[in-house]
């Protein structure tokens, strides 16, 4: 530290001398560069004043006593700035520390989500899930059994960030601890609802849509707990309809029942599941219409399911100026021809 101070002293004397002699732009530029250097070396404002007075004494040995004393006065005043500056440094270090902790938590949260999407002969599956900030409140889950049935869940945990992420771990473990044999969507939500109801704060809740696709007969069974409706694409009619399962959000009433719905899926038909971050996409002109989403999906419908979701995400992110306001999740399950 002492070394760096004497080095700075030398530098400062040199550039001040150049400036006093030539009084030009170059001198001012050097001053700017120097101020970056003092910040890097954590030299406080009052120390900079000291540098100045020492340099002045060097150039003008006959500096009047009054001028010299006035600098001591100035140093006293700069002390406050110096303290604020050191506090700022401490906060900055602290922030770095918090940030790295959040990064660890965010990467841990990633392990809650499936690391690969199921490959099946009967279904083409595409998934994208992008958090608005580091931690996500959107959750999805796939489970495949020996009979070529696939279960898919999409959930939105109220709020964003850390509280949502903590709550997500509960959902993940609750789902993992459900019985091995395949549960019907309604029964699964009823089980999950009891876990959530017992374990969340009064103003927390979770919305979820759970579906089960039976590849042997190509039926899709699904139930919903207050989740944003998805879409069903009917290939023969080239039309979209709303895929909605009415049901109360998870975590409110212990004894909620969930109705089960079902669809017969024909070749080329597909199921679209989404989070409200997709439909509540907000541009300068207000919220987008749900038709905008089906229009985009149709535009890319010749591509694979994964390419569709990737393209729709890109287009909607672009509409919002590449700043997501809410977590964004989109899943497509398409029956192969």
């Amino acid at each position: 530290m002492a070394d760096s101070y004497s080095f700075m002293q030398e530098q400062y004397t040199k550039i001040l001398k150049t400036y006093l002699e030539e009084k030009n732009e170059i001198g001012l530029y050097q001053a700017q560069q120097f101020s970056k250097k003092v910040l890097e070396n954590q030299i406080s404002p009052e120390e900079v004043v000291s540098l100045h007075i020492e340099a002045l004494e060097h150039f003008f040995p006959d500096l009047p006593q009054g001028a010299r004393d006035s600098f001591d006065f100035l140093i006293e005043i700069m002390m406050g700035y110096g303290m604020a500056y050191r506090e700022h440094q401490i906060l900055r270090d602290k922030q770095k520390e918090l940030e790295s902790e959040i990064n660890v938590a965010a990467s841990m949260q990633q392990t809650f989500l499936p690391d690969e999407i199921p490959e099946m002969d009967t279904l083409d599956v595409g998934v994208i899930s992008v958090p608005a900030s580091k931690m996500s409140g959107d959750y999805y889950h796939f489970v495949k059994d020996d009979n070529d049935c696939i279960g898919v869940a999409i959930a939105d945990i109220i709020g964003k960030g850390v509280p949502a992420a903590l709550c997500m771990s509960m959902i993940k473990y609750a789902m993992d601890s459900l019985p091995e044999q395949r549960l019907q969507p309604g029964a699964l939500l009823e089980n999950l609802n009891r876990v959530v109801e017992q374990n969340v704060a009064s103003n927390m809740f979770i919305t979820m849509m759970y579906g089960s696709y039976d590849s042997r007969v190509h039926h899709f069974y699904y139930s919903g707990a207050g989740h944003e409706p998805g879409f069903y694409y009917n290939k023969a009619e080239d039309s979209f309809e709303e895929l909605y399962a009415k049901g109360l959000v998870l975590g409110l009433n212990r004894d909620t029942q969930f109705r089960e719905y079902h669809k017969k899926v024909e070749p080329g038909d597909f199921i679209v599941l989404l989070s409200d971050g997709v439909t509540e996409c907000r541009t300068d002109d207000g919220f987008i219409e749900r038709e905008e989403i089906t229009r985009l999906i149709r535009q890319y419908s010749d591509l694979s399911a994964q390419e569709i979701v990737d393209n729709v995400f890109y287009q909607l992110e672009k509409l919002q100026g590449f700043r997501l306001r809410d977590d964004f999740s989109l899943i497509i399950l398409r029956r192969k021809v």
């Binding site: 709020g159 009064s202 103003n203 809740f205 409110l252 809410d326």
Partner: peptide
């Protein structure tokens, strides 16, 4: 938004 909805749920429970 959903956080706002949570407040009404909390108020309903209370």
């Amino acid at each position: 938004d959903s956080t706002g909805l949570g407040i009404f749920i909390g108020a309903l429970k209370s």
